[in-house]
Nucleic acid binder design. Structure first.
Lengths: 218, 218
DNA sequence: GCCTGTGACGCGATATATCGCGTGTGTGAT
DNA sequence: ATCACACACGCGATATATCGCGTCACAGGC
């Protein structure tokens, strides 16, 4: 249902990069990843440990027991692999950030839906609790009943700016994602020339200049 | 902070009662408990396993390995203990139910607070999503890579494609990064209008179309 | 050129075990 | 009777490992 946050080989490489900084054990890597992405992405144990096993099997890392921890250390072969793909690494962080952002947007919509049913359920539970236990305090005044949605920020320049910036983020992410897919699809069944890249670079520079121009005048 | 759901020896006894019904392994007991209390209470592994170890140590249950599971079975001593305290057992279920209800009341209050602060963000997100989402479906991005492999169309055409795709990635990343910075800088000292977003969206759509055109002809 | 496995991969669920904190509880000293 | 204090207990956090599902990429046949 939910698409993977890390693309096919990206996690493998990212783990190698983390272990290149310092030896770490599995749980530590989970926390490190969660930290790197501001807690928005938290890989599960079932994601990390099989990958570490695979890496060890391939000889890119070595493991050593330390009490109840299992410390993994990068090997020379691992450093070589990492070095030969250092350039791929830059993109991964952005990719994951984008991925998480899209996921978050999806969640926002779902939460919106869930809220309605949750509200009903909570109100019902509150009624039941009140009926079956007379000793409990009469707390929890549930704000049931529609909620008029009276958010009146019409005409607030501050809010408009904030919204615009966020929306621009989404537009940029979506654009980048689409074009990446386009290029890879094309690459898999034909060729992509440097001229395309040159064109892309020029056009994007122009777009940026134009956008900056609209930001300038007012 | 949160008081325990089970009183001092209650869990111990309840576990014994569950194992009197049938032999079970640890995880199964966790699920059984979660079931009994309608999912409102879910004991953690750190609650169950130490208790099972203790019970075994005392000879009230016996354990036997079954694949990667550890099945626990009640012993005669366990049944005796259970019998001698059968009267306590009735109270426990009610106790736990009450405990959970009280906890739920606390949660209700917190949720009510959280909902209030969430409402604004949710409303904002919903409006944005409705206005800006153009039904994105395409997903999946992966790392291109492993250059140098032999393919049908010869020589370095594949390498060139790979390099071009990668470079395009960088161009896209850089562009996105720059524009994000531009917009945030501007937002912090002035305003950003929806018109800018509209312009950006239109221009990027055109760029994508043009790039696709160059990919199409050959 | 297109289609079809098939194997690798990400990831939630399953499964187990220990550590340390806060708190309750019975015991022994006073 | 009272008080202190060690010990037991519940529980979230720490730590590790496997299984099975869905998906994606790449190879090989057509």
């Amino acid at each position: 249902m939910t698409p993977p946050v890390f693309a096919h080989g990206s996690l493998r490489l990212y783990l190698l990069a983390l272990l290149d900084e310092q030896p770490r054990h599995g749980y530590e890597l989970i926390q490190a990843l969660s930290d790197r992405f501001g807690g928005t992405y938290s890989p599960s144990a079932g994601t990390i440990y099989p990958r570490l096993s695979k890496l060890e099997e391939e000889g890119l890392v070595s493991k050593s027991a330390d009490g109840r921890k299992t410390v993994y250390e990068i090997t020379d072969a691992g450093r070589a692999e990492l070095e030969s793909r250092r350039d791929e690494l830059d993109g991964i962080e952005n990719e994951v950030t984008d991925s998480v952002r899209r996921l978050a947007d999806g969640v926002r919509a779902e939460v919106n839906d869930a809220m309605r049913s949750l509200r009903a359920e909570l109100a019902s539970a509150a009624r039941e609790a009140k009926r079956s236990s007379t000793k409990t305090s009469a707390s929890a005044a549930s704000t049931a009943g529609g909620a008029g949605e009276s958010t009146s920020w019409g005409g607030d320049a501050r809010a408009e700016t904030s919204r615009a910036v966020h929306e621009a983020d989404l537009v940029l992410s979506e654009f980048r994602q689409q074009l990446r897919t386009d290029l890879r699809t094309r690459a898999s069944r034909g060729r992509v020339t440097p001229e395309t890249v040159t064109l892309l670079r020029a056009r994007l520079a122009q777009v940026r200049a134009d956008v900056l121009a609209t930001l300038g005048d007012h």
